[in-house]
């Protein structure tokens, strides 16, 4: 049952900003918000609908790739420039949830949605992320939980498919505050539980995510994206990877960025592996070596050790794909 709220329909972001008061929430597509409201996880006195603000709904490819936070996931999937310059992003978008949800859900909502952990989403569990004392997942049913960043009282996985890809693309976020438009690197946007336990990201109350920018030099590089789901129709991933990178004229890896989704409470960068790959000859043998030595720092829970094996496969396949090699795994 949803608690009653007032509803505002501003036409401009500045109006929205002013309308925000103590117990308000912004709503874009509203998929995540309605879910939380229906489960009585949250309640608000007023909800400010951002979906009537035209200035949030654009895809601009003039210089860099700039996507308004209000753009629907389906529009990202269908955008031809994105398909061309950033196939991982359109692929990821096209595999999110269901067509129905993609039509409504927005980029901003996808990036900022609350955890999908089943303990968090159920009123029956007063979990640490909701301000309770324990994380039920760590000693509970944790098959779908994190293998990294899970030692600080919360084990959810970042649910944003867009974030996995955009983190690999080193995207920047433009955020409207009462004072300014600030820019945050997506790689710095999310909090690990160790940093903040009940808040997932740096978009403060009342601030509005305006847009996401991917710089030109990060487009047109080689893309690999793969999402593994138990069920192919509408399911959350059990593992997700995005690799953006290149092979230089010597046949060596160059500037590779690797991000795992469904692995940690934040899009999980494989910085060590990125470094190992820099300048490494792109052969299956060397790729195999990198993959073999990876994930030693993972901390799988009782029921999710399989994710390590799964991610190894994805990493291997992804690097082979970037290198133009046939994967043997």
């Amino acid at each position: 049952m949803i608690k009653d709220f007032e509803y505002y329909l501003p036409k401009a972001t500045e109006q929205a900003l002013t309308l925000f008061s103590k117990n308000s929430a912004y709503k874009a597509g509203g998929i995540d918000l309605l879910d939380l409201l229906k489960e009585n996880i949250v309640s608000y006195d007023s909800i400010i609908n951002l979906s009537g603000i035209d200035s949030l709904d654009f895809i601009d490819t003039e210089i860099d790739l700039k996507i308004g936070a209000g753009v629907s996931i389906q529009k990202i999937a269908d955008s031809q420039p994105i398909q061309k310059y950033c196939p991982a992003l359109s692929e990821s978008a096209s595999e999110i949830a269901t067509p129905h949800i993609r039509n409504i859900a927005t980029l901003g909502g996808n990036l900022c949605q609350k955890p999908r952990c089943w303990y968090f989403r159920s009123k029956d569990f007063d979990c640490s992320r909701k301000g309770g004392k324990v994380c039920f997942a760590i000693d509970g049913e944790n098959k779908y939980h994190s293998i990294y960043g899970n030692q600080d009282g919360c084990a959810f996985v970042n649910p944003s498919g867009m974030a996995t890809v955009l983190t690999a693309l080193n995207a920047r976020l433009q955020i409207l505050t009462k004072k300014e438009i600030k820019t945050i690197n997506l790689r710095d946007f999310y909090y690990l539980p160790a940093e903040k336990l009940t808040c997932e990201h740096k978009l403060n109350d009342g601030e509005i995510l305006l847009s996401v920018t991917v710089e030109k030099e990060n487009l047109l590089r080689k893309n690999y994206y793969c999402k593994i789901k138990e069920k192919q129709s509408s399911d959350w991933p059990i593992a997700e990877i995005c690799i953006i990178g290149g092979i230089n004229s010597l046949g060596n890896f160059e500037n590779v960025s690797i991000v795992l989704g469904s692995a940690a409470p934040i899009p999980w960068r494989m910085i060590k592996e990125e470094k190992k790959l820099e300048g490494l000859q792109a052969t299956t043998k060397y790729i195999g070596n990198v993959v073999e030595s990876s994930f030693s720092d993972a901390n799988p829970l009782r029921d999710n050790a399989y994710k390590v094996k799964l991610f190894r496969t994805l990493l291997y396949r992804g690097l082979c794909s970037i290198a133009g090699l046939e994967s043997e795994r």
Partner: peptide
């Protein structure tokens, strides 16, 4: 849930 006996996926999502 092994610790509380509560079903964790009583929906059509999980």
């Amino acid at each position: 849930d092994r610790n509380t006996g509560i079903m964790v996926n009583p929906n059509l999502e999980m």
